[in-house]
Each structure stands twice: as C-alpha cells, then as structure tokens.
Design a protein around this nucleic acid. Structure first.
Length: 444
RNA sequence: GGCGCGUUCGUCUAGUCGGUUAGGACACAGCCCUCUCAAGGCUGGCGCACGGGUUCGAAUCCCGUACGCGCUACCA
C-alpha cells in the first residue's frame, strides 16, 4: 500500500436533518484527518433533486459548524477538487462513464446504464472489520450495479466512487450500512484503473432498544442539541465514546486528547445504543467545570432570546457564577436568572403555598428584614451569621427561615445558596422582596 | 431466503499474548454532606446470549445454535 496523504471526507445527502449517526461519522473523519495532519473534505451528495433544498443543505452546514467540525475543502470553503456539490459535477461523471463504456464495462438495461461485474471473489480489507471475503460470482445474489437511471440521473454508488477518486480520498470512513456494497465499489475502482482507498466501516448508532433511530427519536437530530443548550464540546465528547474508548476508565476527554489517542483499528465493531442520559451527564460535567468566559458565550444567546437584560458584565458574571453549578441544560437558564435582573419574575405557586402561606413566614421575614436593615456589611458571610442569629433568637431552625426567604427573594423553592443570592441582590431589592413576601404570606 | 457484520451489567465500555474477586461510567437504590435543588463522597444491586469442544485452566481460541443489525434498489 503506497503512502498517500490522508484525505478523509464526510459525504451527507441533504435530508432535512443531520442525524447523530452522521454527525459521529463526520466527527471520526475529522478526528482522523486532524490526527494524521491530513485534509477533511465535505461533499454534499445532492443527486436526489426532489429533496435537494437550500434549507436541507444549510442544516448540515450549520450542524457541522456548531459541532466545531471545520472542513478544509468543501462548500463555503472551496478547494482544488471542487465543485463539492454532486449536483454540479455532472460533466465529471459523464467523463468517467465514457471511460467505462470505452473499456466495455457497461450495458443498457431498460434505459438504465449498468456495470457488468467481473464476477470474482473480492476481499475488502477493512481498517475496523478486518479482511472480509465477498463472493460476487453469483449474479442472482449480487446483481450488477446500476450507474445511471433512464432519466439521466446518477446512482450513489457510481458518483461516490468517482468523487472519492477525483478528490483523492485516502480513507473512506463511513457507516457499516455501506459494508456489503463495498466489494462492488472496489470492482468499480479497478475498472477505472484507480487504487481503492482504505475503508473503515463503523458500527451504527441505534436506539436504546436496538431499533433504528428515526428522525423523530429523541436525540436523533443534531439540531436539537444547540436548541436544548448542550455545549458542542460535550456532545463531541459523548459521540467520541460511541464505538471508541480512550481506555483507562476515562469518560471526560477533550477533543484534543481524542485526536491524540484515536486509532481506526481501535474502533469497536458492535453497534452502539444511543443514551441521551449519558450525554446529558457529560454536558453537566462540562458546564460545571467550564470557565466563565466560555460559559457566558454559550449562555448569553439563551438570555437574549428570553428577553433578559443585565446592567453590566460584572453583574452578569456574578449571577452566572452562582447559577452555573445548578443548570444542566442552557435552555433552562432564563428561569434561574430572571429574578436577578427584573422584578417581573414569576412566583412558583407551589413554593409560595409551601413556604409562605399559612406559616409563620410573615413574622419571621419581618424579623430577618429588621436584622438585615441594620447590617453593617452586606456579604454572604455576614448575611448568614445574621440570619442564624435571628433564628436562634426566635428559637427556630435555620431552614424555617431560609425557605420562606428563598421564595420571597427568588420566587422559587430551589436555587443557589440563599446568602449568595441575597448578596448579589443587594439590600434594597432584598428588603423590598421580603416585604412582598410578607404580603403574600398574609394574603392567605 | 441469500450474503455480510456483530453478541461483556438496562446503556456506553475496559478486558487485545487464555490464569482478573470480570474494572470504570451513565441510570437506579440507600447513606453522608446540607438552607433547597444540584454537585461531591461512600455503599449496594445488576453482566461474559446458549450449547459443544481445545486446555491443568476460556469472557478471551474453534465449531454450532439463537438473537440483533446491515446489504440484497433505477435510496443514500
């Protein structure tokens, strides 16, 4: 096998969504290219005119951009082997078809053009699956490939092989669903006088119950991840672990490390079930340990979308710092931070009923309010000390004061540490909300 | 049906040269911590598909069976 520069490719067809399985295929191709200091090519297989829309193409580009899988050649980027849309490569296909015709490999069948198989045994030496022998001698079980339909449109097998030759692809890393057709592709390469690339067929991604993932299965469409507020680095981490492992019991691993450790022959052969729970957990781990600048970068679009505004970066920074360990999905962020930047935040009825109404909340908040009103220093430590002093004086447990105070101040029964919240809110807003809480408590 | 690939806790996996109390993680249960919810810590239950071989010894090698997935398109 000659040493060729590594060139991998992701060749999706625009179906209207980027499937997680496709996203992982793209990721592994990208990882391998990066590892080998090679080139990652994006090619859009849009030969099916009926569902070939601008939006469908954009979904793919958006998905790859979001995941951080930048391509070296392809749409929006160009390259020496374009065009990168199959719909624009008709002349090239004509030329290759003519070559096969001239060599006598083709015949017509009801208007369609077919490739006459040499009818031999073909060994596919797969990087992941190993050497596999296919016996193509029986036309009954392995029919000749159709290359072109009577209406002139092209069939995937043919254009895919032609493009991989033309684009000098060295490694075809794709889903295992293509494995059985690979020997026929190999015959095509040989008929065209081209050396086949190295093949690597990866296991498929299935649902938890082993069934195929369809569009509407939860987590199947990559577009739902940015919407839900997953961090792309977390999703990359999760996808890397599907069919591959860094060993040493590592679960959280950066893309850089994956690139360093990745080997094609270490990829599993077994189909993997998709587990959104684990992806969710990994995302939580990333959000937890993420530096604030990155966190804010991801968080701000969700706040803007919810119409939340903040006076200064410093103010936002303080709030995000205490909220960060709480929120697992960025889409939930607005409801956690709203109370810091507006007086119009909602009060959770259940929490109000539980901690304010029909309790001693009014008199307790009144006592705390008085203590806080004269507090010389307004910081979490002082606030805690003062609250505990007050509860001791009243002869009640800390929690009996904290819960009503939390609901009064944030409208919710759960949240970050109470003292940290109150410190950020400041004396005026805190006392005003205590007063409002007392009102609510007495209203019942 | 034919051909191909696969089978370690519910799920992702470690286990690559046969000898491990079969390890980790998610999820689940319990406990600790605690102002809530998380996070964190600890503990627990849960697995080598089945049957034959080979061997002193098999999750690991061989054969068979079952099951799953893929291909078998003028889909990609």
């Amino acid at each position: 096998m000659s040493e060729r520069p590594v060139r991998t490719r992701f060749a999706p067809s625009p179906t209207g969504l980027l499937h997680v399985g496709g996203a992982r295929t793209a990721l592994f191709n990208w990882i391998y290219a990066r590892k080998k200091a090679g080139t990652f090519v994006l090619r859009i297989e849009d030969t099916d005119h009926t569902r070939n829309t601008e939006e469908a193409k954009q979904v793919i580009l958006d998905g790859l951009h979001w995941l951080g899988l930048d391509w070296d050649e392809g749409p929006q980027k160009g390259g020496n082997y374009g065009p990168y849309y199959q719909s624009e490569r008709g002349a090239i296909y004509e030329e290759y078809l003519a070559r096969l015709e001239k060599a006598g490999h083709l015949y017509e069948d009801n208007g369609a053009i077919r490739f006459r198989s040499p009818r031999e045994k073909v060994i596919v030496d797969d990087e992941i699956c190993g050497k596999i022998e296919f016996d193509l001698t029986n036309p009954g079980t392995h029919p000749d490939l159709t290359l072109r339909r009577p209406d002139g449109s092209w069939i995937f097998h043919f254009v895919s092989v032609v493009d991989d030759i033309e684009m000098k692809i060295s490694h075809v890393i794709r889903g295992e669903d293509h494995l059985s057709n690979t020997p026929k592709h190999v015959e095509l390469y040989k008929a065209l006088g081209a050396e086949p690339p190295r093949f690597a067929h990866m296991p498929l991604i299935l649902n938890r119950d082993g069934s195929k993932m369809s569009k509407r299965d939860e987590g199947a469409a990559l577009g739902t991840y940015p919407e839900a507020g997953y961090a792309p680095e977390a999703v990359r981490n999760y996808l890397s672990l599907l069919g591959w492992s860094p060993k040493e019991n590592r679960e959280i691993i950066s893309t850089e490390e994956v690139v360093a450790l990745f080997e094609l022959d270490q990829v599993n052969r077994r189909n993997a079930a998709f587990d959104l729970d684990k992806c969710f957990w990994i995302n939580g781990q990333y959000l937890l340990s993420m530096d604030l600048a990155r966190y804010a970068e991801l968080a701000i679009p969700f706040l803007q979308k919810a119409g939340i505004t903040w006076p200064t970066w410093e103010a936002l920074e303080k709030v995000l710092t205490i909220i960060k360990p709480k929120v697992k999905l960025l889409k939930d962020l607005p409801e956690w931070v709203a109370c810091f930047f507006t007086e119009e935040f909602p009060y959770d009825e259940a929490a109000v009923a539980k901690s304010l109404v029909g309790t001693h909340a009014a008199e307790r908040l009144q006592a705390l309010s008085e203590a806080y009103a004269t507090l010389p220093t307004w910081d979490a430590v002082s606030l805690e000390a003062s609250l505990k002093e007050t509860t001791a004086k009243l002869g009640i447990k800390t929690g009996e004061m904290v819960h009503p105070a939390r609901v009064a101040v944030s409208g919710r029964g759960i949240g970050p540490g109470l003292y940290e919240m109150i410190e950020i809110l400041g004396k005026d807003r805190t006392l005003a909300r205590f007063a409002k809480g007392i009102e609510k408590a007495q209203a019942a």
